[in-house]
Amino acid sequence: MSVLVYIESENGAFKKAALEVASYGRAVANALNTNLNAVVFNTKDCTPLGTFGVDKVLSVNHSEQFNAKIYADILVQAAQKEQANVVVLSSSADSRYLAPMLSVGLDAGYVPNVVEIPKSTQPFVVKRSVFSNKAFCETEITTEVKVIGLSNNAFGLVEQSVSLEVESFSPSITSSEISVENVDKAANKVSIADAETVVSAGRGLKGPENWGMIEELADVLGAATACSKPVSDLGWRPHSEHVGQTGKPVASNLYIAIGISGAIQHLAGINSSKVKVVINTDPEAPFFKAADYGIVGDAFEVVPKLIEKLKTFKAQNS
């Protein structure tokens, strides 16, 4: 018996979501009174994982591009080797891509969007969000092996230092019919999935030419930029920025909505963000009912002021 976590890194450093998965895995291992093992790809320094409760790292060297099928296969082999009965992954695009294949490989029940440690381990019951964060449900996983997809930012980072062992792991690599031709990723830009803060704007901004101040605000905050659906449908911003029930989910610590009315489909996607700030000229905009802090005001006046004040604040607090 053991718990296994899949640890993602980027440019050799562990992603925050991965350390959160380790923290969560530790809590599950504690509940089951067992060990926590982690699979790590192409990473030299694994020490931070010991801080988040990982007993043993299975370190894989696989120089090729991420391939979900091959990675899922490697995780299946690692889970079998360690006799894992719970496998935990993050909600990143890559983790969500490979998790269903992993679960078939292990003949395991898979529950995504899990927001808490298991309610009980016998029976094995987890709480997950459903209906695009409009509700939660408790689900019992009835298979012997369980795969859990942890919601971003739901559990947080919890340190528990243990002595870490690193073992190199050489699984057999299967073939895949899929080949990666090209990866197009903006360097130095925070993605919505990884962002602690998201600055989002809607049709209230009037046109794409007005996004300069949104990008500047995001820049000052180290935030990702996002938008409402009509803004991406109109081609003002790329589709990848569309958040909401039919777009991307946002689970950041801070979500700033500028000139967005707060339609039910938009709110569904951002409800699990912790703190929401709204800037809107219309005091009746539905978003004010769903937010923590609000300013009734014109974005074209408020945002430049906010940028200026935040710059001063940052200068004083760094």
């Binding site: 898979y110 019951v125 408790e138 689900t139 009912k289 802090y293």
Partner: peptide, 16 residues
Amino acid sequence: TSTTLKYEKPAPKGAI
């Protein structure tokens, strides 16, 4: 592989 036991709505939001 799984069974849904019960549903719950999110806690009501505090005042803005």
